[in-house]
Amino acid sequence: MMKTQKPLVSVVDDDESVREALPDLIRIFGFDVRAFSSADEFLASEWLKDTDCLVLDVAMPGMSGPELQEELARRGEKIPIIFITAHKDESERIPLLQSGAVDCLFKPFSDVALQDALDRALR
């Protein structure tokens, strides 16, 4: 598989509907998209190195979103991360942003908010 000229956005979320809907929208925004159901799947993927932006669910079975962030940092991977979460808890958002995330979107979020976050991540 070859990476195209378009930036590659990887989506990691254990919710299947998110993994279906989000790639369509991101693709409309003009990016390439790959979806993964867990952090481990992503880490084991060959797309890890080509990923330009990571849209990452916070709470997942197994390794959570922040844990994956730590793992990538430990590996020296500097991929911009946009966290998405269904828990509308502002107290969780701040530490995520402080850890270097581009943004943290609360589900359900608008297509505009997502596009804005992606633009900022890939600027």
Partner: peptide, 24 residues
């Protein structure tokens, strides 16, 4: 929180799918 999570997950899917559909 759990309940909100359970509701927000499908809502997120709805809004993303609807947005995608509209843009298409």
């Amino acid at each position: 929180a759990s309940i909100a999570h359970e509701v927000n997950q499908p809502l997120a899917g709805i809004i993303m799918n609807a947005s995608a559909s509209l843009r298409m």
